[in-house]
Amino acid sequence: MKINGNEIRPGMVIEYDGGLWVAVKAGAVKPGKGPAYNQVELKNLIDGRKLNNRFGSDERVERARIDTKDFQYLYAEGDMLVFMDSETYDQINLSKDFVGDRAAFLQDGMQVMVELHGETPIGFQLPNQVTLEIVEADAVVKGQTQSSSYKPAVLENGLKVMVPPFIKSGERIIVDTADITYVKRAD
């Protein structure tokens, strides 16, 4: 669907200059001379390049159609991660580089959302929170609990997180996947 250049807002995905771009920032500019325009900062979804561009109200751009589908994580195979479509049972392979650091949170059978443009995966979303076990936690120093201090702990997936002093090794906690922070003890 075509939209005017002045309708581009942050978060929109557009097809521009032969690629898929997400609008990071957008702001209307009314100069003293000349027509108003929309100053947009774009980020390429495939290679991560950034671009600043001016779009006039008379310029038309194609808004990309993005579908999200539920996939189940199956297993890792070398540098590839294998996922299965929850509806059709088709399998897709995504590189560990595509998933990034968040690959450490993947657990067998975990449901994830994959954003697709046509048949091409362009985005990946984990559940907001996951439950993991603490494999190593520093001992509590006497008097440390008087202030609201946190101590470092190592999770079963190898990531480090700051936890309250009462959390011990072997306990299960809930971790926020977006910013890798402790949320609460798991029941």
Rank of each mutant, 00 (worst) to 15 (best):
V130C: 08
K160G: 13
Q129T: 15
H117V: 06
K142E: 14
N157K: 00
Q129D: 10
A104C: 09
V163K: 01
V135L: 10
Q125V: 15
T145H: 06
P164Q: 04
K151F: 01
D108Q: 13
S147E: 08
T145R: 13
F124T: 09
K168E: 09
V163G: 01
G100Q: 02
L132D: 02
F166C: 10
S148P: 11
V140Q: 04
N157H: 02
Q146N: 13
S148D: 07
M162K: 09
G158M: 05
F124M: 06
S149G: 13
L159A: 08
V112R: 05
T131L: 07
I167C: 00
N157P: 02
I167Q: 00
L159N: 10
F166E: 05
K160S: 14
V140I: 12
L159R: 13
A137I: 05
L116A: 07
A103K: 15
Q125H: 14
E115Q: 13
V135K: 12
S169N: 12
G143R: 11
F105L: 03
E119N: 07
G143W: 02
N157L: 08
K168P: 06
A153E: 00
L132R: 05
V135A: 07
V141G: 11
A137G: 06
N128T: 13
Q111R: 15
S149H: 08
E156Q: 03
F98V: 08
A139T: 14
K151S: 02
G143Y: 02
G123K: 08
T145M: 07
A153C: 05
Q146Y: 10
P121D: 05
T145Q: 10
G158V: 04
F124H: 07
L132N: 03
V141Q: 08
G123L: 03
M113R: 15
E136H: 09
S147M: 11
P164D: 00
M113F: 15
S149P: 07
I167M: 00
L159D: 04
P165K: 03
V161M: 00
V140Y: 01
E119F: 11
F124Q: 09
S148V: 08
F105Y: 05
